[in-house]
Simulated scan of single mutants.
Amino acid sequence: MNVDEVIGIFREAGAVLEGHFILTSGLRSPIFLQKARVFMYADKTEKLCRALAEKIRAQVRGQVDYLVGPAVGGLIPAYETSRHLAVPAIWVEREGGQFRLRRFEIPQGARVVVIEDIVTTGLSIRETVDCMRALGAEVLAAGCIIDRSAGKADVGVPLIALAEYEVPAYPADRLPPELAKIPPVKPGSRNI
């Protein structure tokens, strides 16, 4: 599946929004990819996650024991991707501002791949990787449906992106004039 096909699925679902958005990272962007509008369609989600699973299978060597999704954004893609890889999907949740594996246990040395929906800076993946390593897991890689950074985000492990789609993002104090004129909206889930 190529970038145009992935973005085409987002467009079909009405998930490519234009305006002034405050991203989960705190950066500002004229484009927001509202993956919830894609994930409400099981067929579209299945198609994307099947393709992501194929990329993971081709790039990760050896057995994968678990896929781990950062809550909230990584839950659905981790679950659906795990179905295609035939491994369990688990997730981390914020507790006191830190990701914790609250509902599951994993054995020492478990081989995991972190699955995220969309990457901008990679912070959620890095925090998930740190959590998993602290529990004694071996983090093999991370996967995402769209890498908005087009390969620039450092997630601390190899990143397998179904599509790299560079979208402009700016610090709040360095907005282009045309973006500064539009009132910002914060559609992300980081503070939920």
Rank of each mutant, 00 (worst) to 15 (best):
F39E: 14
G26M: 04
L140V: 04
G8T: 05
A137L: 06
G97V: 00
I160E: 07
E138M: 04
V68M: 13
G69A: 10
D43E: 15
A134N: 13
F32A: 07
G14H: 06
T120H: 04
Q108V: 10
A86S: 14
S29P: 05
E116Y: 01
R57W: 13
R103H: 15
L159P: 03
A86V: 06
K35E: 02
A172H: 11
K181A: 15
V139G: 02
G62M: 09
R37H: 10
A89C: 11
G19Q: 06
L27R: 13
E116S: 06
R126Y: 06
P88H: 09
T45K: 00
R148C: 02
P107A: 13
L159H: 01
D43L: 07
H84D: 12
L179P: 10
H20I: 02
D130P: 00
E105G: 10
E12A: 12
R133D: 03
D117P: 10
A42D: 08
S29I: 02
V114G: 08
I90T: 05
R57F: 10
R148P: 02
S25Q: 06
P77E: 07
R190A: 15
A134G: 15
P183V: 07
G14M: 07
A71P: 09
R28C: 14
A51H: 10
V38M: 00
A150S: 10
I31H: 11
E105V: 12
M132F: 08
D43Y: 07
K44M: 15
D173I: 00
S82F: 05
A161F: 03
R174C: 08
K44E: 09
D65M: 12
F99G: 05
E138N: 09
P107C: 03
P187W: 03
P168S: 11
I192S: 09
E80W: 14
E80M: 13
V3G: 00
P168E: 11
E116I: 02
R37V: 13
P171F: 08
G62L: 10
Q108W: 10
E164W: 01
R28T: 04
G97W: 08
P171K: 08
A42K: 13
V112M: 14
R94G: 09
G96F: 11
A172K: 12
R61V: 08
E5S: 13
E46H: 12
V16A: 07
I145Y: 01
V119D: 01
A110E: 05
L23V: 05
T128K: 06
R57A: 15
E105M: 12
V157N: 04
V113Y: 11
